[in-house]
């Protein structure tokens, strides 16, 4: 299946572009530089939108399709921007059997976005994640670095409300 791709517009800054150019200059002539450059580009921008990948492709004189092929192959590369509050629901085995799927459903309906998407105001993004090692608290979700455990769907609204304003 094709990946869902963001429609939220790019808002990179001049400083970010300079930082990216420095990264490219540093790695350009190394064999297999693309992975390293993409990893650092993600560090600069938080994700790898088309504008960033196109910039990398032109600077390295390789087709954009090759850059995207690598970026879409590895799950650690992020193609869609994260919100100010990145909500991640653990869908690892323990959380899943404890009803994490229901948490995801609830989040989708409260935030009005699907798994992998971001709200139009860029405030919240929603992702499923693999086991985060907090099985004792299953089912868990995280908002940025905060961990919430032993959840039921009716607790979701309260958690989101904390970040709304």
């Amino acid at each position: 299946m094709k990946k869902k791709l963001t429609t939220v517009s790019f808002n990179g800054t001049k400083e970010q572009e300079i930082a990216l150019d420095n990264v490219i200059a540093e790695h350009k002539d190394q064999p297999g530089a693309l992975m390293a450059i993409l990893q650092k580009a993600q560090g600069i921008y938080g994700y790898l939108p088309i504008e960033v990948q196109q910039h990398v492709a032109l600077a390295m004189d390789i087709p954009l399709s090759e850059v995207y092929g690598v970026a879409s192959f590895y799950s650690q590369f992020i193609l869609n921007p994260k919100g100010d509050y990145a909500v991640s629901v653990c869908l690892g085995t323990a959380c899943y059997v404890k009803g994490a799927g229901l948490l995801m459903d609830k989040l989708e309906s409260i935030l009005g976005i699907k798994n992998g998407e971001i709200t139009a105001d860029r405030k919240f993004s929603l992702d499923a994640t693999r086991c985060i090692g907090a099985c004792g608290l299953a089912p868990v979700l995280t908002v940025n670095e905060e961990v919430y455990g032993r959840l039921t769907p009716d607790m979701i609204a309260g958690i989101i409300a904390k970040y709304k304003d």
């Binding site: 299946m1 094709k2 990946k3 791709l5 088309i50 990948q53 390789i62 087709p63 954009l64 399709s65 090759e66 850059v67 995207y68 092929g69 879409s72 192959f73 590895y74």
Partner: peptide
């Protein structure tokens, strides 16, 4: 090179970037 392999595993398919 306007086409390449996107995604991985069973989801791999040939298409253009993005």
């Amino acid at each position: 090179g306007v086409i390449g392999a996107n995604d991985r595993g069973f989801d791999t398919h040939i298409a253009s970037a993005f």
